[in-house]
Nucleic acid binder design. Structure first.
Lengths: 145, 145
DNA sequence: TGTTTTATATTGATATATCAATTATATTTG
DNA sequence: CAAATATAATTGATATATCAATATAAAACA
């Protein structure tokens, strides 16, 4: 793992970075909202921007499997963060609506999400971040081919 | 998600990048070895370099929880990739030994792991990779504080 | 129109992630 | 040396990841 050749280790670093970020994010969220996961938060944030998306589209946006989304939504409905009703035009789909509890939670979550990002990116120049973005996009493209 | 401000999106990109990389890695491994996961491969690779490490140390190396490692090892013993015996000097610990099947699997895995890395990093200059490494390390440090 | 194909979501099975509580053993300390 | 503390690993509970198989509805097509 501690080779000098970064090609052998940089992919582990990506994994480590996202795991550390998820950890502090979950810790900070849990201080304020007890019964929610960061993945569920992300679902709330996305639905808040566009509540007309399907579960399929939602899955793509958060890089998850359809199966995972189905189960997450199930839990979020059970915990009263979301309502789910059948889509009238396409009866295979569902409407996902954020409940009052969900909206209140969003107000608590949004500032924390901002702080989490700022914490993680603290001390990085905009140039560094742009480069990071560019490089990650290349890796993503490489893997998708 | 499609803000122009990269500070809001770059952390999602990290998540996406590692997920795409894990996907192709698992796909390529599964073509050759049927009953193994990429996480289990990583455990084999690490134990092959140093079979004296404890489960704790192993967990740290692969950025996993102790609990996850316990269960992974349990499965790997069941599938005859590892042997586990009690540590004589410290009876809280265990010795982890790669079986013959494990060794043969390693020979199949190692070249694929190399190809996976090369695929993911294809077209990236050494400079880009070094910068990526540097930036990721900064993020990791930020999150750990 | 009836049949085939495609799209959306669910379910089952298995693996991993994470936290908290617990067990067993080692180490430290009074 | 005994009690307190620390360390290594396990277990239980719950959430997510992934694949394959399935159900249902919509769209395409002949």
């Amino acid at each position: 793992m501690n080779n000098k050749n970064p090609t052998a280790t940089v992919l582990y670093l990506i994994e480590q970075a996202i795991k550390e970020y998820r950890k502090i994010s979950q810790r900070n969220i849990s201080k304020i909202v007890k019964d929610i996961t960061i993945d569920q938060c992300l679902v709330l944030i996305i639905l808040n921007k566009d509540d007309k998306i399907s579960q399929n589209e939602l899955a793509n946006l958060v890089f998850k499997d359809n199966a995972s989304i189905t189960r997450m939504i199930e839990l979020m409905v059970k915990k009263d963060y979301l309502n789910r009703t059948i889509h009238k035009e396409d009866r295979r789909k569902f409407n996902l609506e954020i409940t009052e509890k969900g909206k209140k939670t969003l107000e608590l979550i949004n500032p924390i999400a901002k702080i989490n990002r700022e914490t993680a990116l603290n001390g990085l120049s905009l140039e560094e971040i742009n480069l990071l973005e560019k490089t990650l996009n290349k890796i993503i493209t490489n893997c998708k081919i």
